[in-house]
């Protein structure tokens, strides 16, 4: 093969590879949507099988994250400042999204199952909205889910055994209707911007 022929074959091969890449990208369905309040993953990430319980005692697992968009937030009810601030923001956001026909399920994950009994968690979460889901479970299942969601949390001892606090990720995790992590929203959370971003993502990615 002459050098000229080899070059042409090389160029054709490169073009073919590029075309394949473009087709693969468009077929994967991930459009480049710019959002102002967080990050969308280029490739949504699967969530490892997990099993928690909601406050009504029903199983809360991967299936509960399928068929609709969800926003997940990790916290605990002994958190009187940041958690209520975020839940109140989510209440405003949910009202806004509902009126824009953009249904999004809101889930508060308690990472403090020792103190957050289902009854306590239910009163806490439903005070903000009866539509919000409160879920928690064993340390092992919570750790597994947190790892899948790239959320971190850590118990920090207080002066008495009961007065510990829990450091936790401040991000909201966006889960798509296939039950995969689609992106993250970072604080400070503002209802206007979040609402605009979520409406766009849901509209364009369905």
């Amino acid at each position: 093969m002459s050098i000229a022929k080899a070059t042409i074959v090389g160029v054709i091969a490169a073009l073919a590879a590029l075309a394949g890449l473009l087709v693969a990208t468009s077929m994967s369905g991930s459009k480049n949507i710019e959002i102002q309040t967080g990050t969308l993953l280029k490739q949504p990430r699967a969530i490892e099988a997990f099993q928690l319980s909601d406050t009504a005692g029903a199983v809360f697992d991967n299936a509960r994250l399928q068929g609709h968009w969800s926003l997940l937030f990790a916290g605990f009810t002994y958190c009187p400042d940041v958690c209520p601030t975020t839940l109140a923001m989510l209440k405003g956001l949910k009202t806004r999204l509902d009126s824009a026909q953009t249904p999004v399920q809101v889930v508060f994950l308690s990472v403090d199952p020792q103190r957050d009994t289902p009854e306590k968690l239910e009163r806490y979460v439903h005070y903000f909205s009866p539509d919000f889901i409160g879920a928690t479970g064993s340390d092992a299942e919570l750790e597994k889910l947190a790892r899948s969601l790239s959320l971190v949390y850590a118990k920090v001892p207080g002066e008495t055994p009961e007065s510990y606090t829990v450091d936790h990720s401040a991000a909201l995790v966006l889960v798509n209707p296939q039950g995969q992590v689609a992106g993250y929203f970072l604080p400070p959370h503002r209802v206007d911007e979040l609402s605009a971003d979520l409406q766009r993502v849901v509209r364009e990615q369905g």
Binding site: T77, Y78, C79, P80, D81, P84, K120, R123, Y124, H126, Y127, F128
Partner: peptide
């Protein structure tokens, strides 16, 4: 004081 859910053990 921030109004808290009934039964909340901690307020701010």
């Amino acid at each position: 004081i921030r109004e808290a859910p009934p039964g909340a053990a901690v307020m701010a």
